[in-house]
């Protein structure tokens, strides 16, 4: 059994931040190419086209039916193989996928690629062959530096993504869009999907319902009613 996440045909909102940041890096460099890489069903090319419309130069999609239902271990395996072909200096990830709450993929990919990793980037600077990142944690902001090539996962607060222009949208269609298969990246069906995964969904259930909820209009006694409620719940 697996959770079907293949319904997504729009570019994940968090990935838009990563695309925007890549374009800003490109604009700050003398020469750079922005490639968007994804793993998904063939129709995911539609969502990659939005990245091309924003200004990315090229799209690569590992489109293989066998890869559906891949968990973290299998997804990171395929993605790392696809990224290896690109030999990129900087690999950017969005903060999370919009349909699963996990914010973990980049660390698995960085380990497979044997590259330094910085996550939760609130600011990114690229200069002198190094990435310098202001990272958000529970304790505030760290500043971390890593030599390129490196993997950086950006937060959704890092930038305000641009909207694709009409010209960009028209131009996106003629940009290179490669749909490649597992064999192109040296993997077989056993490496991905259910056979390549190390986790499984055993059962689906309903979330536990909360108790009775009470709603009142404030007629001037609202504050007193909250106080009475807190006392009743032994919170005061």
């Amino acid at each position: 059994m697996r959770l079907d996440r293949s319904g997504e045909s729009t570019l994940n909102a968090f990935d838009v931040n990563a695309v925007e940041e890549a374009l800003r890096v490109k604009e700050s460099q003398e020469e750079a190419e922005v490639v968007v890489v994804s793993l998904g069903p063939a129709r995911a090319l539609d969502s990659l086209r939005k990245a091309l419309a924003m200004g990315a130069d090229r799209a690569v999609l590992v489109a293989d039916e066998e890869a559906a239902g891949s968990d973290l271990v299998a997804t990171s395996r395929a993605l790392a193989k696809a990224l290896e072909r690109e030999q990129a200096d900087l690999i950017l990830f969005g903060q999370q996928s919009s349909d699963s709450d996990g914010a973990v993929l980049w660390a698995a990919v960085a380990d497979r690629l044997r590259l330094p990793l910085i996550s939760q980037a609130a600011e990114l600077g690229i200069a002198d062959g190094k990435a310098t990142v202001k990272r958000q944690t529970e304790f505030g902001y760290d500043r971390i530096e890593a030599p390129l090539p490196a993997v950086v996962a950006v937060s959704d607060a890092i930038n305000e993504p641009r909207y694709p222009s009409l010209k960009g949208i028209m131009g996106a269609k003629s940009k290179p869009q490669d749909a490649i298969g597992l064999t192109d990246i040296g993997l077989s069906a056993d490496d991905v999907g259910e056979p390549g995964s190390r986790t499984e969904v055993l059962a689906l259930g309903e979330p536990p319902a909360r108790g009775e909820s009470r709603k009142i209009e404030d007629d001037g006694s609202g504050a007193q009613q909250i106080l009475d409620f807190l006392v009743e719940e032994k919170l005061l």
Partner: peptide
């Protein structure tokens, strides 16, 4: 769960080819 733990756990999963369930 924490910023650090998520990165460590996912890196470890890849290193050991082990399953990771989160949240």
């Amino acid at each position: 769960a924490s910023v650090l733990a998520a990165d460590v756990a996912a890196g470890l999963a890849a290193r050991l080819d082990a399953g990771l369930n989160w949240d």
